[in-house]
Amino acid sequence: MESWARKQAAVGVPGADGGADPGLAPLLVAVISPREVVRRGVVAMLGDAGRTIRVSTVASDARSGDVGLVDVVLYDLERLTGAPHTELSRLLAGSAVVVAFEVVDRPDLAQRALSLGVTDSVPPDVGTRTLIDVLRRAARGEGTSASAYRADRHAEAVRRYGITEREAGVLALIAAGMSNEQIAAHLFLSINSVKTYIRQAYRRIGVGSRTEAVLWAVRHGLAEPDPREAERRAR
């Protein structure tokens, strides 16, 4: 299938003045989600993009949706809960770019999807402008703004709760599934130093267990889908 970037260069769509705008070939998007609220919500959000993005397929699974002629598939990772990743692997083997729609409190699903080769992932509370920008950039094969969105949430959590960058980094590594020993090895710290950072962070954010800390990190943008990014932030 012809890439969207190539179509952009060759196809024009009507501009606001009725003339052709050669830089805006419509981006064809498929929304695959077993959750009706996600399907309806995403379609409504992408409606704000006007003629530059067209949702051509909306389905609960890839088999019942026609994804053969789209440029980008927005794939709800709810499809991976309790199921193998065969469907996602088939999509990734096709011609369309795949962007994952994350599931609340399940950063492990985003990690799995990224390891399989999705172009990027967006959090469930992604805003309209960010989602549109992510899809367009993904179709062009560029880096997306999703990481910048998470960075903003990360910075806001640091300011609001008064945690240090080191404490935030340790929380991110906890959310990535690392043990205290693994965190110490990655950050070249003693195990006692890691425990001190964890105690301080728990006190500042008001949690009392590792599970609560993981959920807090996910909800406040500290949990990175890519564990390597969590490691970079923690250093």
Results as ranks from 00 to 15, higher is better:
95 S>R: 11
87 E>R: 05
191 I>Q: 14
198 I>G: 00
189 L>H: 08
126 V>A: 01
170 V>S: 05
98 V>G: 03
222 L>C: 01
131 L>P: 02
97 V>K: 03
66 D>R: 10
100 A>M: 10
47 G>W: 07
134 V>M: 07
221 G>N: 02
156 E>K: 12
40 R>T: 13
166 R>L: 13
211 T>E: 12
44 A>N: 06
142 E>H: 13
69 L>Y: 09
119 T>D: 14
130 T>F: 07
211 T>N: 08
4 W>F: 09
77 L>E: 03
225 P>H: 09
38 V>L: 03
158 V>C: 04
101 F>L: 14
124 P>N: 03
46 L>P: 05
160 R>V: 09
107 P>H: 02
70 V>P: 02
116 L>H: 01
15 G>T: 04
72 V>G: 10
230 A>S: 11
83 A>Q: 14
14 P>L: 15
92 L>F: 01
156 E>V: 13
123 P>V: 14
98 V>R: 02
165 E>M: 14
142 E>I: 08
150 R>S: 12
77 L>C: 06
36 E>A: 15
209 S>G: 07
231 E>S: 10
2 E>W: 14
55 V>M: 00
199 R>I: 10
124 P>V: 13
11 V>W: 13
101 F>A: 08
92 L>P: 02
72 V>D: 10
222 L>G: 03
82 G>P: 04
8 Q>L: 12
149 Y>I: 00
106 R>A: 15
117 G>I: 06
214 V>T: 08
16 A>N: 05
3 S>H: 11
60 S>D: 10
43 V>N: 01
63 R>E: 13
113 A>P: 03
98 V>S: 04
185 A>P: 01
179 S>C: 03
137 R>F: 10
60 S>T: 11
58 V>F: 01
1 M>L: 11
229 E>F: 09
153 R>S: 06
21 D>A: 12
70 V>F: 01
198 I>T: 11
39 R>S: 07
1 M>A: 10
84 P>F: 02
39 R>V: 05
225 P>T: 01
44 A>E: 13
212 E>L: 07
166 R>G: 12
151 A>M: 13
190 S>R: 15
28 L>N: 09
100 A>S: 10
6 R>S: 14
181 E>R: 14
180 N>F: 09
160 R>K: 14
105 D>P: 08
212 E>Q: 15
58 V>H: 00
49 A>S: 10
52 T>D: 11
66 D>H: 07
208 G>M: 04
